[in-house]
């Protein structure tokens, strides 16, 4: 039974790692982009229109 528990623990560990990885990627990416956006806006670069985000 204890050996089986190790497999269960490994499964939950894998779930934790993959979820954390995905969340981390999304959050860090968002943070970096937000910073870049702010830097560009501070530099005085404006978009042509409010909706012209996607090319």
């Amino acid at each position: 039974m204890s050996a089986h528990l190790a497999y269960v623990a490994a499964s939950y560990g894998a779930a934790l790692i993959i979820s954390a990885g995905l969340i981390g990627w999304v959050v860090l990416d968002a943070r970096a982009r937000r910073r870049e956006l702010k830097a560009l806006e501070d530099a005085g670069i404006r978009r042509r229109s409010a909706g012209g985000g996607a090319p």
């Binding site: 968002a30 982009r33 870049e36 978009r47 012209g52 985000g53 996607a54 090319p55």
Partner: peptide
Amino acid sequence: RTEIWRRRIAAM
């Protein structure tokens, strides 16, 4: 949302 920002940054 991040992807939209990314494209916006590229456009800017």
